[in-house]
Write a protein that binds this DNA or RNA. Structure first.
Length: 110
DNA sequence: ACGTTGACCTATA
DNA sequence: GTATAGGCCAACG
């Protein structure tokens, strides 16, 4: 598997429960903030990965559940997030800034 | 092979 | 604050 996809999956799996991150943050961590689209494409292939990828913890910069439709059902993503203690209203994460998990900070500063 | 689309982001008007 | 433009790379028709 390409490093890009592999790193994306790796970072996503490192996201602690109750925390969320953005495609841009992952892309920035990989060194290509402009290639954030590729992160989304990587997630598209995430459901065929052997290991489970908590793609529900990955949202866009606005904290909006843009990819909820790709989970098979439009409610699974919100259900999973709420199950981890994250409030979601109108497909948008409440206090997104509080639940935001930055891989660059958390992984690099550690 | 070419054109369009896509789970995005930043910048400019 | 909404609208449009540009950019990135991969997959789909």
């Amino acid at each position: 598997m390409n490093d890009f996809y592999d790193k994306v999956y790796d970072v996503v799996r490192l996201i602690p429960a109750g925390k969320v991150t953005s495609y841009g943050a992952i892309a920035a961590y990989l060194g290509s903030v402009q290639s954030s689209r590729m992160v989304g494409w990587a997630m598209n292939n995430a459901h065929v990965q052997d290991r489970f990828v908590p793609a529900h913890r990955v949202v866009n910069r606005n904290g909006l559940l843009t990819g909820k439709h790709h989970f098979g059902s439009s409610t699974i993503m919100q259900e999973l997030l709420e199950a981890e203690g994250i409030s979601v209203i109108n497909d948008q994460i409440v206090d997104f800034n509080r639940h935001f998990w930055n891989p660059m900070i958390e992984l690099d500063m550690e």
